[in-house]
């Protein structure tokens, strides 16, 4: 039997909103250690890696490892039926055809059950090596979302250039160009407002706005975002999910023809 309970559905609601633009379906790998999802978007340009540790759940039971293929569009619709304060329980039996979502109101006066059919999926699983990145930028997630949105007006791609002076985001198009520079913050009262740059070597990479604007849908999950970059390898855009796990997006850089 598989059963996982979160005291507040808000986290799971935000996770679904953070992946639904990129993934229409995905396999949820459930084991003793928690729930993991690794899936490429339909165009196979980006990769989503989600990790929810079992110890972050209020209750977690997984008697045997399960791979459950879920329709993300349907799952998003179901999670939208939960109030943020509702308790959410995911339940499935061994060799399941279905998964059940149970939402319980804080007063326990409302109990809603939604059953979703699982799908059979053949998925490529990619091995992501541990990488030392040339630049790691930590910055407020809302600021990153704002920059992606603002620069998307000027072109289809955003160039991120990171040096010891700071990080520069720029976009160029037929009607003009724009660039936004962020310096490392010297001192901040609140850690979540800090811009922190860990640079070994300067990096300049260009990424498609379309994907960056999908990644920033994870902004409600965490006040800070971590961008890890090295020349000629995919960007890693990471958001912590409270004390329970993280979501990482990998995006292939644009390269000169």
């Amino acid at each position: 039997m598989f059963e996982a309970r979160l005291a507040q559905s808000a986290i799971l609601k935000k996770v679904l909103e953070a992946v639904k633009d990129l993934l229409s379906e995905a396999t949820f790998e459930c084991s003793d250690s928690g729930i993991m999802v690794q899936a490429m978007d339909n165009a196979h340009v980006s990769l989503v890696s989600l990790n929810l540790r079992s110890d972050g759940f209020d209750k977690f039971r997984c008697d045997r490892n399960l791979s459950m293929g879920m329709n993300i569009t349907t799952m998003t619709k179901i999670l939208r039926c939960a109030s943020s304060e509702d308790t959410v329980t995911l339940r499935a039996w061994d060799n399941p055809d279905n998964i059940i979502f149970i939402f319980e109101s804080p007063s326990k006066e409302k109990l809603a059950e939604y059953e979703m059919k699982l799908i059979n999926m053949d998925q490529e699983h990619l091995g992501i090596p541990e990488t030392m990145y040339s630049c790691v930028v930590k910055m407020p997630s809302a600021e990153f979302a704002r920059i992606c949105k603002d620069l998307s007006q000027f072109g289809e791609a955003i160039t991120i250039a990171c040096s010891k002076e700071g990080v520069k985001f720029s976009a160029a198009g037929d009607y003009g160009n724009a660039n936004i520079k962020l310096a490392q913050t010297a001192e901040v009262d609140k850690e979540e407002e800090a811009v922190c740059i860990d640079m070994q070597e300067p990096v300049k990479l260009t990424f498609a706005c379309r994907y960056l604007n999908s990644f920033v849908k994870a902004t409600p999950l965490c006040a800070q975002v971590k961008l890890s970059m090295s020349a000629d390898v995919p960007l890693v855009c990471e958001y912590s999910i409270g004390e329970i796990g993280h979501i990482r997006y990998y995006l292939a850089p644009k390269i000169d023809d």
């Binding site: 165009a43 490529e124 990619l126 091995g127 995919p234 990998y250 292939a252």
Partner: peptide, 14 residues
């Protein structure tokens, strides 16, 4: 111009 390789060309298929 710029182009883009698929993400799987950067990571090995398990």
């Amino acid at each position: 111009g710029k182009s883009q390789k698929g993400i799987s060309s950067y990571f090995k298929v398990k």
